[in-house]
Amino acid sequence: MNLPLAQIPLLLIALVAILMVGSTHLRLNIWLFSAQALLVTMATALSAVQHSDSHLYIIAALLFVLKVLAVPKFFMYIIEKVEVQRDTGTVVRAPVAMLLSIAFLWLSYILARQLPVPSGDTIGWPGATAAISLLCTGLLLMLTRRIALSQIIGFLVMENGIYIFGLTQTNGMPMFIEMGILLDVLAGVMLAGLIAFRIKKNFEHIDVTMLTELKENL
């Protein structure tokens, strides 16, 4: 398999996601997320060079400023304020979850090969593999973690996966849509971060698995 240069960041993104599932240190997870976002930015920039598409450069610049710098900075600020270091995870422990996510990567490869995308000028599978595996890994992070912040990171990993899908499997979404999506996602992350603060303030913890007061039979 001789992959074009542009496809390498895509596969690295999927590998970084697996490392995120394996790490229980919040700080490390935020660094890994930042690294993942950097790889996403690189993939965007490479695609911009390849298609000589000017608006992809703007998207790449926005991604760099927002996802690589601003969001991790915001998360670091939150964990300093709420004083948590580790996220021990729920029933599914980190090593098991990591093995699961490796299995997901393999499954994604099979799925990506079957995806009904008519083959164009580029090789389609690395992008689709990365996208599907990021979706699964993000969901896995959201389901297996206790701390509110880890769930937000899981959501962002999912969103990266969807972005990668759009980047590699389509001719590029219209730019104003792309920007609107970015804006919405960031506003959502800000809001979720603020609510995480409140959870800490009200419950003295930010363990969302313990938010179980609202049940059917009160």
């Binding site: 959201m142 969807i162 979404m173 609510i195 938010l211």
Partner: peptide, 23 residues
Amino acid sequence: LEAAWKYLMICSVGIAFALLGTM
């Protein structure tokens, strides 16, 4: 707080799938 957190998380994940569908 619990209701708002669940609402935000569940709907955001759901909507993320709708974004994939849109793509």
